[in-house]
């Protein structure tokens, strides 16, 4: 019997469930390692070499190198873990969140100041605004 996943029709959203977590285990644990200053320094010195120490897929490594957070999430990454990469890069959480939306940093900040992304049209995939 398949599990009930009522959240797959929410647009622009990937729910980090047990299945995604299984796929993203090493990617997320790599991110976790960046909580230590020594590891951040080693990662910055040679990102590829550092990534190669982890049993991650080539796709996951490429997504990290490209700082493509949407791709990282599609491959099992979770935003709270991925935030460690942003911290290593000196990015704020808002810069990271904005980078996934297709908006510029300024556009995203302005959208938030203006009350955020509206719910209308954003509840279901294909919903009419």
């Amino acid at each position: 019997m398949s599990l009930d996943k009522p959240y797959t029709d929410v647009p622009g959203t990937t729910i980090f469930d047990a299945d995604m977590s299984r796929q993203g285990y090493h990617l997320n644990q790599f991110c976790m390692s960046l909580m230590k200053a020594d590891n951040r320094a080693r990662f910055k010195a040679n990102e590829r070499a550092y990534l190669d120490e982890w049993p991650m897929s080539e796709e996951q490594k490429k997504a990290v190198l490209a700082r493509d957070l949407n791709r990282c999430i599609a491959l099992g990454g979770n935003i709270y873990f991925l935030a460690k990469i942003g911290a290593t890069d000196g990015k704020s959480f808002q810069q990271m969140a904005g980078s996934m939306t297709g908006l510029s940093e300024e556009e995203y900040r302005n959208m938030m100041v203006g009350g955020g992304r509206p719910i209308e049209g954003n509840r279901y995939i294909g919903e009419k605004k």
Partner: peptide, 16 residues
């Protein structure tokens, strides 16, 4: 209300 991930990041729903 908040969403930190994906293209829908930035969602806010004041009424809710």
């Amino acid at each position: 209300s908040h969403q930190l991930q994906g293209p829908r990041a930035g969602l806010i729903n004041k009424e809710w």
